[in-house]
C-alpha cells in the first residue's frame, strides 16, 4: 500500500510539474530519441508534457466524479436509513435507476448539450463529469443505506419521542466517514473508465481538456507507435496504482 501510494503521488507530482514546465518543442511527430525520449506530438509538443497534462486531466475528471458520486451516495444512503419505511421506498428507486443501461443513456444525455461533429462528439469536460457522476452513484448509495440501516443501535429505539437528527448523524458519522473513504477510489476509477468508454465508442471529449483516452483515440488516426504506446503505458500505470490503493483501502474499511 505504502509503495503504491508513494508511486502514485510521484506520478501526480511529476505530472503537475511537467504540465507547467514545458520541455523543448521539436518537429511534429518525431520518434523517440535521446533529445525527445518519448517523441513529439502532432503539434511538435514534447510527448512528456502532453502525457503529463493528460494524466492530470484524467485524474481531475476521475476526482470530480468520485467526489460527486460519493457525496450523493452518502447523502441518499443516510436519508434512506433514517426509517424503515422510507428505506423500502428509496431503495426501490435506486434499483430502478440501476436497471438503466448506463452507456447508451449517457450518450443520449450527452447529445443534449454536446455538438456532433461527424467523427466525434464535442462535449464540455465538466458537464460530462457531472452526468457520469449522476448516473453512477446508485450502487454505492444502496450499500451505504444497507450498512447504516443495519448498524442502527437498538438503544436508540428506547429514547422517548424518537431520535433527533443530530444524534443520528453523531451515531452514523464514523460509518459514513469509513464508507466515503472506501468508495472514493472505486468511484474515481469508475469515472475514468466510463469517460474512456464514451471516448472510445463515440469520440466524446473536450479538446480543451485532453485526457489519456483522448490521446489514445487520436493515435488511431496515425500509425506512429509512440502516440499510442506512451499514453497506454501511462494509463496502465495510473489505473493499476489506483486499483491497488483502492483494494487496500477497501480491506481496511471492510
Amino acid at each position: 500500500m505504502k509503495l503504491s501510494l508513494v508511486a502514485f503521488l510521484a506520478v501526480v507530482a511529476l505530472s503537475l510539474f511537467l504540465s507547467f514546465y514545458n520541455l523543448p518543442y521539436g518537429p511534429p511527430l518525431t520518434p523517440p530519441s535521446p533529445q525527445f525520449p518519448l517523441g513529439t506530438y502532432v503539434n511538435g509538443k514534447n510527448m512528456i508534457n502532453v502525457n503529463a497534462v493528460a494524466v492530470l486531466n484524467t485524474l481531475i475528471f476521475g476526482g470530480m466524479v468520485g467526489v460527486i458520486e460519493v457525496s450523493a451516495a452518502l447523502a441518499y444512503g443516510f436519508v434512506s436509513a433514517t426509517s424503515g419505511r422510507r428505506r423500502t421506498v428509496m431503495v426501490r428507486f435506486l434499483d430502478a435507476f440501476n436497471s438503466i443501461p448506463r452507456l447508451p443513456f449517457l450518450f443520449a444525455l450527452a447529445l443534449f448539450y454536446g455538438s456532433p461533429e461527424g467523427a466525434f462528439l464535442r462535449s464540455n469536460f465538466f458537464l460530462t463529469a457531472l452526468i457520469v457522476a449522476l448516473t453512477g452513484w446508485f450502487n454505492y448509495a444502496r450499500q451505504v443505506s444497507e450498512k447504516l440501516y443495519f448498524s442502527y443501535s437498538p438503544l436508540l429505539t428506547k429514547i422517548p419521542g424518537g431520535v433527533s437528527l443530530y444524534l443520528l448523524i453523531f451515531q452514523y458519522l464514523p460509518t459514513l466517514k469509513g464508507m466515503g473513504v472506501k468508495f472514493f477510489l472505486p468511484a474515481v476509477i469508475d469515472g475514468i473508465s466510463t469517460y474512456t468508454a464514451m471516448g472510445v465508442i463515440a469520440g466524446v471529449g473536450d479538446p480543451n481538456f485532453p485526457t489519456l483516452t483522448t490521446l489514445l483515440n487520436a493515435s488511431r488516426l496515425f500509425t506512429y507507435w509512440w502516440l499510442f504506446l506512451v499514453p497506454a503505458l501511462f494509463r496502465a500505470i495510473v489505473i493499476v496504482l489506483l486499483y491497488v490503493i483502492s483494494d487496500e483501502v477497501s480491506k481496511r474499511y471492510a
Binding site: P116, G118, F120, I201, A202, V204
Partner: peptide, 22 residues
C-alpha cells in the same frame, strides 16, 4: 452503430440501442 449515431447526432438510434440493450 451507437458510435456513428452519436457522432451524427441521431438520438432516435441512440434511444433504440438503449432500449434493445436493456
Amino acid at each position: 452503430l451507437l458510435g456513428r449515431s452519436v457522432d451524427a447526432g441521431d438520438i432516435r438510434v441512440v434511444e433504440g440501442v438503449l432500449l434493445i440493450y436493456s
